[in-house]
Write a protein that binds this DNA or RNA. Sequence first.
DNA 1: CGGTGCGTTGACATTTCTCAACTGTTGTGG
DNA 2: CCACAACAGTTGAGAAATGTCAACGCACCG
Lengths: 240, 240
Amino acid sequence: MDTRDTIADLRRLPHFRGLPDDLLEGVASASRSVRFDAGLTIFAEGDPVRGFWAVRSGMVKVYRLSIDGHEQVLHHLGQGRTFAEAAVLSMSHYPAHAVAVADTELIEIAAEPFLRLFRGEPRLAAAMVSALSNWLLDLTDRVENLSIASASVRLAHFLLRLPSRRADGVTVLELPFAKKELAAYVATTPETLSRLLRRWQEADVLRSAGRRLEILDERVLSAIADGGENAEVRRAGRAP
Amino acid sequence: MDTRDTIADLRRLPHFRGLPDDLLEGVASASRSVRFDAGLTIFAEGDPVRGFWAVRSGMVKVYRLSIDGHEQVLHHLGQGRTFAEAAVLSMSHYPAHAVAVADTELIEIAAEPFLRLFRGEPRLAAAMVSALSNWLLDLTDRVENLSIASASVRLAHFLLRLPSRRADGVTVLELPFAKKELAAYVATTPETLSRLLRRWQEADVLRSAGRRLEILDERVLSAIADGGENAEVRRAGRAP
DNA sequence: CGGTGCGTTGACATTTCTCAACTGTTGTGG
DNA sequence: CCACAACAGTTGAGAAATGTCAACGCACCG
């Protein structure tokens, strides 16, 4: 891959949008393309910071591990997303783990050259500030979601925010990662996830086939996501 | 309050540490001191951004409201902390609510003058990047905690991270805010919180008197915070 | 074709929430 | 200075949601 390609890729990132070519060339020369097969670790918590990454294709999971081995997902990152900027900008060690959950192609922007550039080029500062602010908003949303006690509400939220397309009168969406991952993301277990989907399916709220979901009744799903309790689909037998 | 005082206060903030006086004067002149009695709203979600704040004394809560009225606490901020920088730097409206939970004295740094300064002064950029990174780390910790299913683990975590002092062989700590707030912060109900404390008290793990807590057996509490399950204090009767 | 791991389902134990009532504390106005 | 209102905190009882353990079908991969 040559520098021209890298520049084109970088330009698609919000960080570098609008910056002139000569500046980007400096960044590009500090970058390289790397492949990670599904399951491979990109960096581990505590590793010294080497650089930050942009996802060219595939999917990356950033997470922490608690002492008892439970995994806490911080983010899932698909095409076009970047991660670990904050680590490069102000930490010496990565504060979390990152792993490829699918075959993944990344651009690695090495820390040292990037930081030199950052210090010398005020235009980059604004861009990085904006990138960090976006992360903050993301995490804020995440905290908001996790603060909700009910797993069904969290799951409904997640599904409704997923990119979707309409076809044959129903909304079709594709889960961006395996159900196991999804369960971890909404902070529940695969079993609970499976049961929720089944319950909703039995209530004709949605249909689930592998990673493909069809939302049949968006109003009910929205109601679950909002109120939770009252709107929840009741199991079997209805009161007399 | 005059500009000299303000500069002295600002200098204590990590944002401005190490910056020369002449630069700080510009920031100080865009700042003013404000008082909020307990319960008063500082800004509401959706309000146009006016500026960001530093806490001089008291306690501020930043939170969101879900549609059903449930409150999701993002942060509690005491003396020396700042908030809403990200809003000033890259949003037009506040993404959350902020309210004083005690009588509070704040420094408000107005958005417009600060932004002008920020754009013209590269040294500020590094400071703001570092401030935002700190927020990211905070929120990351918060997500990690909330991802833990068990309320007891979340509470134990919180207590162990609280500043404390040793006295008479036990660790004494002061809750930084009311139990009701604490319950919201660890994403549970006041009832559950009360029961957890009582249970631990009955197991001689700690003693609770109002906002004052004495930790009698830090090992057990740590065990609860880490493993959770196995270490949990069992109620009544022990197995044969 | 066998294995490895995801996803599902069942049964069960626990935790936590909800509702409701009651107590203690605090601050205010008479 | 006291009475009372308002609210934080506690306690109890019962229901519901979720996690855990275990077994099994199924798909994909080598």
